[in-house]
């Protein structure tokens, strides 16, 4: 790798800082912790970027480094007390919000547009942007639980302990998150292809 490649990568890493911070914030829901995780991930990336092989995108590589930093922070932290605000939890567990999507007999009430995977890099960037916006729309509890499962790959039991809910409640929280994401993408993604 020559000098200009190196400085390109350093510049590129810097431009991805905001995206990394945003993901860390979605998971941690704490600005200073998210800042720390981002900073540490970037430092680690700068130290080892000569080892970056272009098998994955730079962003993917950075996100995988960030994942370890976020995991460290979560595991070092004392587990949260159970969600104390019962009204809040009830809201998180309300699945009747999806009732309008289904008929009384449990059938979908409207046909589903056929999605396809993004066909190009440009389309994928667009998809990711919408996905990120949709993740941001989830409640703090839902996005934390969802990302603990889908990104950090904590077990369901560990996720329950971290969020402070029963496994039954976690099941509902994750169901709601997935239904909301599908719905949000369905509204925002123009997937005509």
């Amino acid at each position: 790798m020559n000098h200009s490649d190196t400085s390109n990568i350093v510049d590129e890493i810097a431009t991805l800082r905001d995206a990394l911070f945003h993901l860390a914030l979605l998971q941690l829901r704490n600005k200073s912790e998210a800042e720390d995780a981002t900073q540490e991930a970037i430092l680690a990336a700068l130290e080892s970027h000569t080892g970056f092989e272009h098998r994955s995108s730079l962003k993917t590589w950075l996100i995988s480094i960030l994942r370890f930093k976020v995991l460290d922070i979560i595991r070092a932290k004392k587990r949260l007390l159970p969600v104390s605000n019962m009204a809040k939890l009830e809201e998180e567990l309300d699945v009747t919000v999806f009732d309008s999507l289904f008929e009384e007999n449990g059938c979908w009430s409207a046909p589903k547009d056929a999605w396809s995977d993004p066909h190009s890099h440009v389309e994928q960037v667009q998809f990711f942007k919408i996905l990120e916006a949709c993740l941001t729309n989830l409640s703090p509890t839902a996005s934390r639980a969802f990302l603990m499962r889908e990104w950090l790959e904590l077990s369901p039991d560990e996720t329950c302990a971290q969020i402070g809910v029963s496994s039954g409640n976690l099941r509902v929280i994750l169901y709601r998150a997935r239904m909301q994401l599908r719905h949000c993408l369905d509204l925002k993604w123009d997937r005509n292809a």
């Binding site: 994955s56 056929a114 999605w115 994928q124 990302l147 889908e150 993408l185």
Partner: peptide, 24 residues
């Protein structure tokens, strides 16, 4: 069939977004 295809695309793209696999 439509809905499950949507979930499939969602989970696959989410995996890529979260750095689980390479971009196309």
């Amino acid at each position: 069939q439509g809905a499950s295809k949507q979930f499939e695309v969602l989970f696959r793209q989410l995996g890529m977004f979260l750095g689980k696999s390479g971009s196309p």
